[in-house]
């Protein structure tokens, strides 16, 4: 007789299943690893950076990276036009980029989900008004709207983040509303309502957890888009202001030196690209892991 118990597969937890599908994509794992490194860099910046971000050495202006002729070992990626260590500024800059991503995504997710839930649930005129307002926001190119908003609010990192959060809002509203529309007529929701659940409970406890998958994927995309937009605003002089070691602002300061010192331009941009790329790789992996349609294939 054969032992049948050996063939029984243990049921996986939801998290385990998610992890299984997520790690099937090599890109997603690499993205996650790079992202963790960036987070560690931000958290332990004072331990990693050999210099303070705004520490100037007037004797060492535009020093080339350490491996080039004339470079110094203590200035790994060289110095900028006022003698600050580029590597240290990049390490501290990671704090700003991650902070921007977290604030923007939190603001637009919280507001977007609440407004989307209201639109999807209330229907009728409320829905029409909300969706028209979102259409209006979407009619502007995001960077242009953010630029004009910052012109109204005044340049600076905080205002730039608020502007970018507003520009990101419609995506979350639309996504939440669409999910609510499909979920709200399903039996489990009707059952909950018949059992006497009130609107807030139906909205946040019954329906919202079932709409989370697309929202998580969108939040990842919004995170990387926020970093890019904030860097673009910084580059245009409308985001974080000097001497903040924000990557986009660093690029703006370095622009006039591109013909003389390639490194002051190359490294801040590379830092933006690597971080955004890592988050987008994770986003692709998340989408594949959370999308039931793809799992079956």
């Amino acid at each position: 007789m054969t032992d049948t118990t050996q063939n029984v597969v243990k049921p996986q937890s939801a998290l385990g299943e998610f992890w299984y599908y997520f790690t099937r994509s090599k890109g997603a794992v690499i993205g996650l690893a790079v992202f963790v490194i960036v987070v560690l860099m931000a958290v332990f910046a004072p331990l990693i950076a050999p210099h303070l971000p705004n520490e100037q050495d007037r004797a060492l202006l535009l020093l080339p990276p350490s491996w080039m002729e004339g470079g110094k070992a203590s200035f790994l990626l060289g110095t900028d036009p006022v003698g600050r260590d580029i590597f240290s500024r990049l390490v501290y800059g990671a704090r700003f980029s991650l902070f921007i991503g977290v604030v923007v995504v939190s603001l637009s997710v919280v507001l977007g989900v609440v407004i989307g839930l209201i639109a999807g649930f209330a229907g009728g005129k409320t829905d029409i008004v909300i969706m028209r307002i979102m259409d209006i926001i979407l009619a502007f190119p995001s960077l242009l709207l953010a630029l004009v908003l910052v012109a109204v609010l005044g340049p600076g990192l905080m205002n730039a983040m608020m502007a970018i959060a507003l520009v990101n809002l419609p995506h979350f509203v639309r996504l939440t509303r669409a999910s609510v529309m499909t979920e709200k007529t399903k039996d489990y929701v009707v059952g909950s309502r018949v059992a006497g659940a009130r609107w807030p409970r139906l909205m946040f406890i019954t329906i919202l957890p079932n709409c989370l998958a697309p929202l998580i994927v969108q939040a990842t995309l919004a995170f990387s888009a926020a970093i890019l937009d904030a860097a673009a605003l910084g580059f245009l002089g409308m985001g974080a202001q000097p001497p903040t070691p924000e990557w986009g602002t660093m690029l703006a300061e370095a622009r006039e030196f591109i013909s003389r010192a390639w490194w002051v331009v190359t490294f801040p941009g590379l830092a933006i690209l690597i971080t955004v790329l890592a988050i987008n790789l994770m986003g692709d992996g998340l989408r594949d892991a959370l999308d039931p349609k793809l799992k079956r294939s």
């Binding site: 890019l228 673009a232 580059f235 690029l251 331009v265 941009g269 955004v276």
Partner: peptide
């Protein structure tokens, strides 16, 4: 994922 303002500067360099 490209920050195009940086991409432009690189191409110029």
């Amino acid at each position: 994922s490209m920050p195009i303002f940086w991409w432009g500067l690189l191409l110029i360099i």
